[in-house]
Amino acid sequence: KEQQNAFYEILHLPNLTEEQRNGFIQSLKDDPSVSKEILAEAKKLNDAQA
């Protein structure tokens, strides 16, 4: 469930490039146990690119 939530949120971050988004999603698939950390990174990058 946590992985699904992170997946959904990353898909809807407006400021990520397609490449960045795909990278985060691939990381989620590779290691779902760190989905919280991956989501935090994605949000940080999204904010930095706002």
Score class of each variant (00 low, 15 high):
18 E>Q: 11
44 K>E: 09
8 Y>T: 07
22 N>F: 13
6 A>L: 09
19 E>H: 12
25 I>H: 06
1 K>A: 13
37 E>G: 10
47 D>I: 14
9 E>K: 15
37 E>P: 05
50 A>K: 06
10 I>P: 01
16 L>P: 00
20 Q>F: 02
4 Q>E: 12
11 L>D: 05
39 L>R: 04
46 N>F: 01
48 A>I: 12
42 A>I: 01
27 S>Y: 09
30 D>H: 14
24 F>P: 00
24 F>D: 00
47 D>E: 10
32 P>K: 07
45 L>G: 01
40 A>Y: 15
49 Q>L: 10
39 L>I: 11
44 K>S: 07
1 K>M: 15
42 A>M: 01
17 T>W: 04
15 N>I: 01
17 T>H: 03
28 L>W: 07
37 E>W: 15
31 D>A: 10
41 E>A: 13
5 N>Y: 14
48 A>L: 15
6 A>W: 14
30 D>T: 13
29 K>M: 14
10 I>K: 01
16 L>H: 00
27 S>A: 08
26 Q>T: 08
13 L>H: 04
38 I>A: 04
47 D>S: 14
45 L>C: 02
28 L>G: 01
2 E>Q: 05
34 V>T: 12
14 P>I: 08
4 Q>Y: 05
12 H>R: 15
18 E>T: 08
21 R>I: 06
42 A>W: 01
39 L>C: 02
18 E>V: 10
15 N>M: 06
32 P>Y: 08
29 K>Y: 13
38 I>N: 01
30 D>K: 14
50 A>S: 12
15 N>A: 07
4 Q>T: 09
27 S>C: 03
23 G>Y: 15
12 H>W: 07
45 L>Y: 05
42 A>Y: 01
23 G>L: 15
24 F>E: 00
48 A>S: 13
31 D>E: 10
9 E>L: 14
44 K>V: 10
14 P>C: 06
46 N>I: 01
2 E>C: 06
1 K>E: 15
21 R>N: 00
37 E>A: 08
21 R>G: 01
1 K>N: 14
9 E>C: 15
49 Q>C: 03
33 S>P: 05
13 L>N: 01
5 N>R: 15
30 D>G: 13
7 F>C: 07
29 K>S: 05
46 N>S: 12
11 L>S: 09
4 Q>I: 07
27 S>V: 11
17 T>V: 02
5 N>K: 09
23 G>V: 14
16 L>N: 00
12 H>C: 04
41 E>S: 14
3 Q>D: 15
11 L>F: 13
36 K>P: 09
49 Q>S: 07
8 Y>M: 11
15 N>T: 04
27 S>F: 12
4 Q>A: 10
